[in-house]
Design a protein around this nucleic acid. Structure first.
Lengths: 136, 136
DNA sequence: AGTACCCTAACGTGGCGTCAGTGTCC
DNA sequence: CGGACACTGACGCCACGTTAGGGTAC
């Protein structure tokens, strides 16, 4: 057994379970997103840390900053009914969703432009080298 | 007259013409993307700098790093026929395009997931507050 | 003398990666 | 004694923003 027999996990076990690096977990702790207990110097991650990390990684996939995620997690802790927390999370999600949709629109434009530029560039190359490449 | 009467521009004029900050122009110079001449301490930007800045900003919209842009600009300078440069640029464009398409796909997935989460969250809020909000 | 513009130098941002050096356990 | 793991700084990355402090020209 790596641990003491209870439900805590070492940093290594956490990394394997969640697919993150030790550096990332320490970083989240420095930013006050995780609060592992200490056994001597070593960190031990509890169920609570695991739940928080799940939410952290989900938030990251949606493009929330760690600071935003921290604030939502804090709300979650302070709110027993989770009503206010849920409300705030939905608001944040709506704002973030709008950003992501705007970002997708910009990305679509950029992709379209780059495709055009690329087509023109390849056409120029073809005309420079003769028609040998045009068929490829 | 601000300048010496030739075709150079001050940093201020460049910023207004291209919609960038002085800090950005100095930064591009530090990274060797621009080479304005000096009149005393002041920078004077030539036609060449303007042409390069146009390409820099275009490259940035496509998500190229400044280092990648610098390499392409350097090729452009060293290659009189621009054949090799055009070839390299097209290769870089193809790679970048693939990245952007992958990013778009990920973004689509994330948007879909976030919409689902949001819908569930709003449904929970509605059930908590009764049906008063559900119709809104 | 003010003020409008220019300059350099250097730190801050976000999310970690990557050493460097030390400690602990087996 | 070696090796695997842990730890704490602290600097590096990218593309600048933002002071801080000083010069120069009108």
């Amino acid at each position: 057994m790596t641990g003491t027999g209870d439900e805590t996990m070492t940093i290594r076990a956490m990394c394997e379970a969640f697919g993150v690096t030790p550096r990332a977990l320490r970083f989240y702790e420095a930013r006050e997103l995780l609060f592992p207990i200490r056994e001597g110097q070593k960190r031990l991650y509890t169920r609570r840390d695991r739940a928080r990390l799940t939410l952290i990684l989900r938030g990251k996939r949606f493009g929330f900053s760690l600071e935003e995620i921290r604030q939502l997690l804090d709300l979650y802790d302070r709110d027993d009914t989770h009503a206010a927390q849920l409300h705030a999370t939905c608001e944040a999600a709506r704002r973030r969703l709008a950003q992501m949709e705007a970002q997708r629109a910009e990305l679509d434009v950029a992709i379209g432009e780059l495709r055009e530029h690329l087509a023109r560039g390849e056409a120029m190359l073809a005309s420079m080298y003769g028609r040998t490449i045009a068929a490829a």
